[in-house]
């Protein structure tokens, strides 16, 4: 049983966002870097209720749209869609399994990046140049996600005595 409250979720998203904007470039491996904000959206989609998952997706997308150089609104649409879809299929998954978490994150990241590139190409922007980085970024994000999900599960887990 997990109890994810809105203030804690949004605070975590804010911290991840700040880390991404300030420090994460230094954590790059061969030009690839993990997407912490995306990881958190996946986590909330898997473990939180539908409303909070979509709110987390919308908030993350909005923040990314505001501070990044890409087309405005693309992150919002993609991340909120990821949150909605993943939250829908989450009850069918064994969420505590690292394998399930890893596969969910990787698949969501690859589909989201592909969608971003596809939308960008409709707008006349370059499609092919960024495609080669989707898989390395997805792998790195997945590895980091599986690691931080364990800590987050502990953080949000409600102790058994509280359930009784």
């Amino acid at each position: 049983m997990y109890k994810i409250t809105r203030p804690r979720a949004f605070l975590l998203l804010g911290c991840a966002f700040l880390i991404h904007m300030t420090l994460l470039d230094r954590a790059g491996l061969f030009g690839s870097k993990p997407d912490l904000v995306f990881s958190l959206v996946v986590f909330f989609s898997l473990f939180a209720n539908r409303r909070l998952a979509i709110e987390a997706g919308v908030l993350s997308g909005l923040l990314k749209d505001i501070f990044s150089s890409g087309r405005f609104g693309l992150h919002l649409v993609i991340l909120s869609s990821v949150a909605a879809v993943l939250n829908k299929i989450a009850p069918r998954l064994y969420r505590e399994s690292k394998f399930a978490q890893g596969v969910s994150t990787a698949a969501a990241y690859i589909l989201a990046s592909g969608a971003y590139r596809a939308f960008a190409s409709f707008e006349g922007l370059s499609l092919s140049s960024g495609m080669g980085w989707i898989i390395p970024d997805a792998v790195y994000t997945t590895v980091v996600s599986v690691l931080i999900f364990q800590g987050l599960m502990e953080y949000f887990r409600v102790a058994d005595r509280l359930l009784l």
Partner: peptide
């Protein structure tokens, strides 16, 4: 003062 928060674009602030 800031980096791009998205992995899908490269910019700085």
């Amino acid at each position: 003062i800031g980096r791009d928060p998205s992995n899908w674009s490269n910019s700085i602030i």
